[in-house]
Design a protein around this nucleic acid. Structure first.
Lengths: 120, 120
DNA sequence: TAGTTTTACCTAATTATTTAATAATTAATT
DNA sequence: AATTAATTATTAAATAATTAGGTAAAACTA
């Protein structure tokens, strides 16, 4: 998988959120100052050639949807961070974060319980 | 803090590792195919204008060293990932990772013990 | 000291990314 | 049907990132 550029990522975030959408709908979700309709259209077509998005023709128009899921990209992003900055170890990252946030043993445990509950 | 581009980040990783170094020394650490000396030199000067690096003059030459620490950039990177993909919550990211790696309660506990030990 | 090497600095060329104008086509409206 | 609006496709302009050539000054070497 290839990393998204910043502008591409913005569009993907919206498409992940919408599940599917027309260019217009994506544009509507964008923050002001909104880019031109064609700018969004161009990026979506770039994302399509990069294999992140597909479309189904609806009449003459296109409805776009993600084919790379947000979870897949999440996973890719975590792994990139881990390998670049924590020797590939999640434990190292967690320790780093805990130290930085001054988490004490109690708080670490609370997080762990939450994770355990969630994993079930 | 501003994000590093890919090429800038490569140089920073080497400087963090070296603690300090001449252009030549950074170049030596780079993987083949090595870029031109001037390419490295240019990037280091870009990093200097971005405030990531400084130099001390040694004779006529410059010895460069990071002023943004790897830890500072680590922190920035985690936070960017958390806010973009996990609603700012470390717990969410940990759960996501645990599920993805099929960690069971035992393994989660082992990680948290490690973290607790490390935080002390 | 004359030539070679090393280095920083300036500049430019190339490539990637971002943005959108223009053109073409279809759909909707009067 | 003619006009206007909506949409995709094509193209290009603007900006950012990457790469390195050329030049000048200093340092080293024969």
């Amino acid at each position: 998988m290839k990393a998204l550029t910043k502008a591409e990522e913005q569009i993907m975030q919206i498409l992940w959120d919408l599940k599917e959408g027309y260019v217009k709908e994506v544009l509507d979700k964008m923050d002001d100052p909104k880019p031109a309709y064609n700018t969004v259209s161009t990026f979506i077509r770039i994302l399509e050639t990069k294999g992140f998005v597909k479309h189904r023709p609806i009449g003459k128009s296109h409805q776009y949807y993600p084919i790379v899921t947000k979870d897949e990209y999440r996973s890719f992003s975590i792994r990139r961070l881990l390998s670049g900055y924590f020797g590939g170890s999640f434990t190292k990252m967690a320790s780093f974060f805990a130290k930085e946030e001054n988490l004490d043993a109690k708080e670490i445990e609370r997080i762990m319980e939450e994770v355990k509950k969630d994993v079930k």
